[in-house]
Computed example of a mutant assay.
Amino acid sequence: MSNLVTVPKNGNTIKKNFNYPTRSSWFDDFLLGELPTVFSSNFNTGISLPKVNIKEIADAFVVEMAVPGLKKSDFKIDLDNFTLSISAEIEENKEETNENYTRREFGYSSFKRTFTLPETVDDSKINASYNEGVLNIHLPKREEAKQKPARTIKIS
């Protein structure tokens, strides 16, 4: 469908809608319309790249990753030369048998997020926890990098 606007000599705008579909718009509607939703609604069960919040507090950095539906054992967290990698792989097989049919579905999903840590992180004290769909990674700062409380300096 195309929208054409004509401007007459008096300056008023008149909008005309022409509803004559072209062959290419029919083709686009077919390919971009219902066909992909039919396939994606049944077969797109993979994990998208999870959202991550990273915050800095006085004595650490905290990474929060929203990954509901997984188990603690699904995750792999690696640290290699100040590069933190968080990944998960899930393989799923389902079979439903009825007297008239058998339905089998299988899927494989994975993701990997990688972060470069600042050198102020004490890598020997990093810990992680997973609770109610949120993976938390606590990255403590080295003692010399921790923020010191504000203080007043007396003039002598």
Rank of each mutant, 00 (worst) to 15 (best):
M1I: 12
S2V: 13
S2Q: 15
N3I: 15
N3E: 13
N3P: 02
N3K: 15
L4A: 10
L4Q: 12
L4E: 15
V7D: 01
V7R: 09
P8A: 10
K9W: 07
I14Y: 11
I14K: 13
K15S: 09
K15E: 15
K15H: 15
K16G: 05
F18N: 14
N19H: 14
Y20L: 15
T22N: 06
S24N: 14
S25A: 05
D28R: 12
D29S: 11
F30P: 00
G33E: 01
G33L: 06
E34S: 11
E34M: 15
P36Y: 06
V38S: 06
F39H: 13
F39S: 08
S41R: 12
N42G: 07
F43P: 00
N44E: 12
T45Q: 13
I47P: 04
I47H: 04
P50Q: 02
P50K: 07
K51I: 07
K51H: 13
N53I: 14
N53T: 11
I57E: 12
D59Y: 04
A60D: 03
A60W: 01
V62S: 02
V63E: 01
M65V: 08
A66L: 12
A66K: 08
V67R: 00
K71Q: 13
S73E: 14
K76T: 14
K76E: 11
I77P: 00
I77D: 01
I77M: 06
I77F: 02
D78V: 04
D78A: 07
D80Y: 12
N81R: 02
N81M: 08
F82Q: 08
T83A: 09
L84V: 04
I86F: 06
S87K: 06
S87L: 05
S87M: 12
A88G: 00
E89I: 10
I90Y: 04
I90R: 10
N93S: 12
N93G: 00
N93Y: 15
E95R: 14
N100F: 12
N100C: 06
Y101P: 04
T102H: 09
T102E: 10
E105Y: 12
Y108Q: 14
Y108C: 02
Y108F: 13
S110M: 05
F111I: 06
K112P: 02
K112F: 05
T114W: 03
T114S: 13
T116L: 11
P118T: 02
T120H: 05
T120G: 05
T120P: 01
V121E: 00
D123K: 03
S124V: 04
I126E: 04
I126Q: 03
A128V: 00
Y130S: 09
V134L: 01
L135S: 00
P140S: 02
P140I: 01
K141E: 03
K141C: 04
E144L: 08
E144I: 08
A145N: 00
K146N: 10
Q147P: 07
Q147H: 01
K148N: 10
K148L: 14
P149N: 11
T152L: 12
I153V: 14
I155R: 10
I155D: 06
S156K: 14
S156T: 08
